[in-house]
């Protein structure tokens, strides 16, 4: 299969649209989960966990930065602007990833954060990200194939971290187990749009930009079922109240973006 470079895709409008739509999903997923992760800095359950989650946050945002740079190369605008200035309705992240770290939690005044929910959500993100990148290693778009190979090799550390926590929660005592069950129930109320690639699915498949979407979804569900089975935690059916891949979001996303980009918006031309 002949691989495409950024210049080749720019001359193929039929490929540019679905490709950039997919890249926005990758970038927005990692940016918003990285944002939620970094809100834990100083609040994680213990000092080593603070270090671990700080690293994971940095890596998620670092991965997002690469995807935004790929969008810049395709003529979509400056990477920093794409990350900081787009409205919530333009964002393609899965809805679950934008939700706060706890109930009614305001980061600055009352961070009543929920660690179990944070870990379960992150685990589900990691499994989908890995299934997606595994398929994208053979993408016809060469820069994406190369990035997938590389980012995949780092993601396994994130997933190992969440799995270790979930195993610990499942077997520690009845309280930790109940909290894990509650976090799982909550995640599945929102999960529906995560393992999906949005309205361009057929085009992505047909053009060879994302071959094997169904296989990637199946891999996601197989791995999730196997792991929850091992933990003997019941997982409900996944609901999809909103479809983030189509720009539908909760008000939480706009709130997060306004904090995330507050400094950047003061002077978008500033040199850092």
């Amino acid at each position: 299969m002949e691989r495409w470079t950024s210049d080749e895709v720019k001359n193929r409008p039929e490929a540019l649209k679905p490709l950039t739509d997919l890249l926005f999903q990758l970038a927005d997923d990692d940016l918003v989960i990285g944002y939620r992760d970094q809100e834990w800095l100083g609040l994680a359950p213990h000092i080593e966990e603070d270090v671990a989650f700080g690293s994971i946050a940095q890596e998620e945002i670092g991965h997002a930065a690469w995807y935004f740079r790929m969008l810049e190369e395709l003529g979509m605008g400056r990477a920093d602007d794409l990350a900081s200035l787009r409205e919530a309705r333009e964002r393609k992240n899965a809805v679950m990833l934008e939700l706060p770290n706890g109930e009614g939690a305001d980061y600055l005044t009352a961070p009543h954060f929920d660690w179990d929910w944070t870990i379960v959500r992150h685990y589900l993100h990691d499994v989908w990200e890995m299934a997606r990148l595994e398929a994208l290693k053979t993408s016809r778009y060469l820069p994406l194939a190369e990035a997938s190979e590389k980012i995949l090799s780092e993601k396994r550390y994130h997933r190992a971290h969440q799995e270790l926590w979930m195993r610990t929660m499942a077997r520690h005592d009845s309280v930790s187990r109940q909290k894990l069950e509650a976090a799982t129930a909550k995640a599945f109320q929102w999960l529906g749009d995560l393992p999906s690639v949005g309205p361009a699915e057929t085009a992505l498949e047909h053009l060879g930009i994302f071959s094997g979407v169904d296989e990637a979804k199946r891999a996601f569900w197989d791995q999730v079922d196997t792991f929850f089975g091992e933990l003997r935690i019941h997982r409900p059916e996944a609901a999809k109240p909103l479809d983030g891949r189509q720009g539908q979001h909760t008000p939480e996303l706009a709130r997060a973006l306004s904090t995330l980009s507050e400094v950047y918006r003061l002077d978008p031309t500033a040199k850092w």
Binding site: E48, V51, A52, F53, G54, S55, I56, Q58, E59, G62, E154, Y157, A160, H161
Partner: peptide, 13 residues
């Protein structure tokens, strides 16, 4: 191993 993550992305503790 004390921590899979450490002071930078590339290291464990």
């Amino acid at each position: 191993m004390e921590n899979l993550f450490a002071s930078t992305s590339c290291r464990s503790l």
